[in-house]
Design a protein around this nucleic acid. Sequence first.
RNA 1: GCGGGCGUCGCCAAGUGGUUAAGGCAGCGGCUUGUGGCGCCGCUAUUCGGGGGUUCGAAUCCCCUCGCUCGCCCCA
Length: 441
Amino acid sequence: MSQLKSLRGMVDVLPSETHIWQAIEAIAYSHFRRAGISEIRTPILESTELFARGIGEETDVVGKEMYSFLDRGERSCTLRPEGTASVVRAAIENGLLNKGAQKLWYAGPMFRYERPQAGRQRQFHQIGIEFLGLGNSRNDAEVIGIAWNLLKDLGVQGLVLEINSLGNNEDRKEFRSKFVAWIESHIEELDNDSRKRVRSNPLRIIDSKDKGTQSLLAHAPKLKDSLSEESKTRFSNVQKYLKDLDIPFKINNNLVRGLDYYDHTAFEITSHQLGAQATVCGGGRYNRLINQLGGPSTPAIGWAIGLERLILLIKNASKDDPKGKAAHLIEQKKPDIYIVNRGNEAERKALVLSQHLRSAGLKVELDYSSSAFGKQFKRADRSGAIWALVLGDEEISTGQGRLKCLKEEYFGDKSKNNEKLFNLDDLESLITEIDQSKKLN
RNA sequence: GCGGGCGUCGCCAAGUGGUUAAGGCAGCGGCUUGUGGCGCCGCUAUUCGGGGGUUCGAAUCCCCUCGCUCGCCCCA
């Protein structure tokens, strides 16, 4: 009998990690709330056509990375590879766009059928925002700023923001015909991947990592030279606003991104710490997408952060600075009290006490083992609790429980008798005592 | 999808054809039937990712397969 395993590239998030996810989510939600961004939850499964039409038939994501299958009604379904298409579909379908601009966020799993490697899984998680109906270039800076400030607040170090302008649709059409004409006359100098893209998706040739292709491109027509005056102004405004916000950025004219729906501003936030999968946040403006999916012509911009990659960065930052924000996020919350208990009556009382103390807001671990006091103290110590609360036959007969401090940095070393008695029927003073100690922690 | 590396207990590992598969950490029990952080003692892999094969004999060699990992591609 072979061991049952999760599917390739599908990863369990275990209890030793989930608190990190929760901490990140809590901080992100707080940023969104303060920016007036509301949550939207859309299905994980959508019709294949949504992504094919939204992301673009010729993209890699649609062409070779989708988790698609036929359901029992022979409909082609796809596990969402990204969030934007679903959000746009939901906004159109539910008439949200008739209610003015929509500032939305989402979080959840995404699926791409790829070979797993560092920072890349088949099921991964994104948290993202989409601003629908907001076409001003100030919105571009605001949206980028939200990502930048969130990452900063999470204590992540060494990030680089790169931006580019892809112009509008006409700009790109003009560029494409110039570029294709030029590149076709140099086709034998291109790398294999780029050669295939000349017809299907020529813009992607620009960000090829192939050295030969890159040096060839030095002589090719440039996208930025095809931008209209309006597009150029828009792009320089975005830069101006980013400077106002003190957000450092680099212009990368080769940044085109792999999804077809982007217009004007495209951006990525990367870290060299992530190896080959360097992008932790990617996004851009998509002014045509809503119309293309059947909605009213509506400008929009958004981004997504990859949570697994973000967590890699937070762990790195925590190593570099064990006292910093990132380290704080990673830290497991220790119990306030560990209840050492033994004997029938004492164990009954301990159960009741644990509930009362938890109701009072304390984090309480109850020892279930009935094993020797020595063993229980050892576990109490390992749990990291500040206090041990001791209940045995003796305490039951006297009606006085014992509260013992386990942290010598607070209450002197072990040889001193750092135990206090408390009345088992009066928990008020006990709780007060413990609450005070938490201020020391 | 393509190329390189790897896969021995929950974790870190030694072992590269020969009778019982080191060790450390963690866990559990004891020394100490009521007091922790130290110490000592004991227990914890019929089995080396899985399946086949070669051999008197395989964790060690061969084939297949699964998974992880690094790079390509792509993206978060």
